[in-house]
């Protein structure tokens, strides 16, 4: 991946353009300033505040009464028993659920997204309409689509059971969101349905930016289209796909509304965000909940760094510009 992580060591013709470079450098900081100010002002403060609250015993009942308690929210001992997020089985259950959910759903989304992007990239009649149709799931507000699917998956009035029963796939209705063995799959299915368009659109944009002459050459040479796809197309669109995957994973790891609406706080589907929100809001434990949120942040940061570094190193090998 061509992210800025790897410094481009070959700063060529340095001396000749040193003047120009410094002008460009100044321009760079000027260009970056609005974004950095906006981020620092609006996002930075709430982030830091949450991290700080994680070290206090703040409670929603009276926020002004909070005291610094160090790492007690993370781990503490009381009467010989361990307390804190780090020893809470529910937290680890939530971590596991979230990872499982993210890997599976982002995996499917990438695959389907690529497939749909390839379809949309081909010339055929009604392409515009199909393109719009494919985007519909992404366009419906999450809150609404979660409710809609909850209704469609209902064991008694759900249209899904109705269809599967009438086709003969099921012999009796399944309580998709209630049964612990199907609940997570129901959530994953809805997420895939909802966010595949996001992947498809980003992949499509990358496909559209590929130079047409490569394909022309490949076609003239009579190379198998599948070979062309794996040898030419995929490597070229990989940076875009990796960015899409990173952002989808970030969203998936923070998944909240979908699970909250579909299965609420059932332990079989509880994600890290749902856990944090339960502590922060439902249980009023601002301090403890903030500690959980901070841990969530750390988990995501670690995973992202790994993805970026791994993705960046690999594509760096084949890079040639």
């Amino acid at each position: 991946m061509t992210l800025a992580l790897q410094q481009d060591g070959t700063a060529t013709r340095k001396a000749k353009r040193s003047n120009l470079s410094s002008a460009r450098l100044r321009a760079a900081w000027l260009f970056l300033a609005p974004m950095m100010i906006a981020l620092a002002a609006v996002a930075g403060w709430p982030l830091l505040r949450t991290i700080w609250l994680g070290f206090t015993d703040a409670n929603l009942t009276d926020l002004s009464q909070s005291q610094f308690i160090g790492f007690e929210n993370y781990l503490s001992y009381y009467d010989g028993e361990a307390y804190g997020v780090l020893v809470d089985a529910e937290w680890w259950n939530a971590v596991w659920n979230t990872l499982w959910f993210s890997v599976i759903s982002v995996g499917f989304e990438t695959l389907f997204g690529l497939l749909i992007a390839l379809i949309l990239n081909a010339e055929f009649k009604g392409r515009g309409l199909v393109r719009a149709a494919v985007l519909i799931p992404w366009a419906i507000p999450t809150i609404v689509s979660a409710k809609m699917w909850g209704w469609m998956l209902h064991d008694q009035f759900g249209v899904i059971n109705e269809i599967l029963l009438s086709v003969g796939i099921l012999s009796e209705p399944i309580a998709w969101t209630a049964d612990p063995s199907t609940a997570m799959w129901a959530v994953i299915m809805v997420d895939v349905w909802k966010t595949t368009p996001f992947m498809a659109l980003l992949t499509l944009a990358a496909l559209q930016m590929l130079p047409g002459d490569i394909y022309e050459a490949a076609r003239v040479d009579g190379i198998n289209p599948i070979r062309v796809f794996f040898k030419v197309t995929l490597p070229l669109i990989r940076p875009a796909i990796i960015v899409a995957v990173i952002f989808r994973s970030l969203d998936a790891l923070r998944v909240f509304d979908l699970i909250y609406v579909l299965t609420s706080s059932s332990t079989s589907t509880m994600s890290m965000s749902v856990y944090a929100r339960q502590q922060l809001v439902d249980f009023q434990e601002v301090g403890y909940g903030s500690a959980a949120a901070t841990l969530l942040f750390i988990v995501i940061a670690l995973l992202t760094t790994i993805t970026v570094v791994a993705g960046g190193l690999k594509s760096g090998e084949g890079e040639q510009s």
């Binding site: 709430p46 982030l47 923070r254 942040f297």
Partner: peptide, 28 residues
């Protein structure tokens, strides 16, 4: 434009997307 700390900056920008919305809600 090549300048030092670009990678770090990108990661910092990205980290804004790493915090759960529910957690920054009250600060926001």
């Amino acid at each position: 434009i090549h300048f030092r700390g670009r990678g770090l900056l990108l990661m910092t920008i990205l980290s804004v997307s790493m915090f759960p919305q529910v957690a920054i809600l009250s600060g926001m």
